[in-house]
Amino acid sequence: MNKRMNAMEKQPTRRGFLDWLIGLCSVVTGAALTVPGLLYLWPAARGGASEDVEVPNASGLAPGQSAILQVRGKAVIVVREQTGFTAISAVCTHLGCLVKWDGSRKEFLCPCHAAVFDKNGAVVSGPAPAPLPTYRVKEVDGKVYVSVA
């Protein structure tokens, strides 16, 4: 008798199936509502393809001097050297403060946690875990352009 009752209990019932179906529908509905919400929160991409941005008043920079500008939302330092211009990310790889160019030492210094980078962006001292990325610079008709990929 008990065996027969147990067997009956294990058999799928209409109620059990409906419970399962309602549960599944709830999960699917929840996911259908949540996924667009999460995607909505994801920042929309901006900027598009790489483009050359002119460095304002680049000709006014003496050798050893620098200028800072934003290229596609990224802070970039352009340094004038004897041989030409170099462009390097101004964002410290430690915690995101902007480094400053020290023309007398030919080094970049972060004011937040004292990370020091050489003129090529390599870490000299301090807590920075990685070098500063460098960017492409070109001079056309006396004007200087920086390109951030």
């Binding site: 800072i68 500008l69 934003q70 802070a75 915690l95 403060c97 902007l98 004011p111 937040c112």
Partner: peptide, 21 residues
């Protein structure tokens, strides 16, 4: 956005974490 002030420090309740880092 183009000038980080020197020696920025967080509020007092973040100072222990700031220093530990």
């Amino acid at each position: 956005p183009l000038a980080t002030p020197a020696h920025i420090k967080p509020e007092w309740y973040f100072l222990p974490s700031y220093q530990l880092l």
